[in-house]
């Protein structure tokens, strides 16, 4: 592992939602800040910056991770997916997103992108999770508006409708 001098800005190369990007970051810069402020990915929301709320969850090489607990330089040469990659190019919502709308699984929508990414990870690995398993995954996120029941119902609906288009 190479050492980065304090204060030095180094290039970080990664693929974000299918497009290659290069940006510069200090070693201490959080991935969440890098994605939002350097690459303009404002669908990555910052809710607590200590890893509890889950708003900033993205997929790093296909695995859901808190981008606020990851340094930008750690994401070098990774592939990152965020919520704006879920709908089709012409805006058609995937099964999971459509189920969220149907079940009123979001209100303010601030926590929603992170929850969608955790559920996307789950449904890719386990296409037919039990309700308990879905509750388990969603419990890694805080939502203050909905009371969660719509989110769980939506996820189970998406399970029954087949895995999300990705």
């Amino acid at each position: 592992m190479s050492e980065i001098e304090k204060g030095a800005r180094v290039p970080v190369q990664l693929v974000l939602n299918g497009t290659a990007h290069t940006g510069f970051a200090e070693s201490r810069m959080l991935l969440s800040d890098f994605l939002r402020e350097v690459l303009g990915a404002t669908d990555v929301h910052v809710g607590c910056e200590h890893g509890v709320c889950g708003c900033c969850t993205v997929l790093i090489d296909g695995v859901a991770a808190r981008s606020c607990l990851t340094l930008a330089v750690q994401a070098e040469a990774t592939t990152i997916e965020t919520a704006s990659s879920l709908a089709s190019a012409d805006g058609e919502l995937n099964h999971l997103q459509a189920a969220f709308r149907k079940h009123h699984a979001l209100q303010c929508g601030f926590c929603t992108p992170g929850i969608l990414m955790s559920l996307t990870d789950l449904l890719r690995r386990e296409p037919e999770p039990t309700r308990e398993r879905v509750v388990d995954v969603v419990s890694g996120h805080l939502c203050r508006c909905t009371g969660y029941s719509g989110i769980i119902d939506a996820a189970m609906d998406a399970v029954n409708a087949g895995s999300p288009k990705t």
Partner: peptide, 19 residues
């Protein structure tokens, strides 16, 4: 009626103050 707000929010296209 499901919400007209949802499509943008579900696609990460919300326009929050910090955005």
């Amino acid at each position: 009626l499901p919400r007209k707000e949802d499509a943008a929010l579900l696609s990460g296209r919300g326009r929050f103050a910090d955005d």
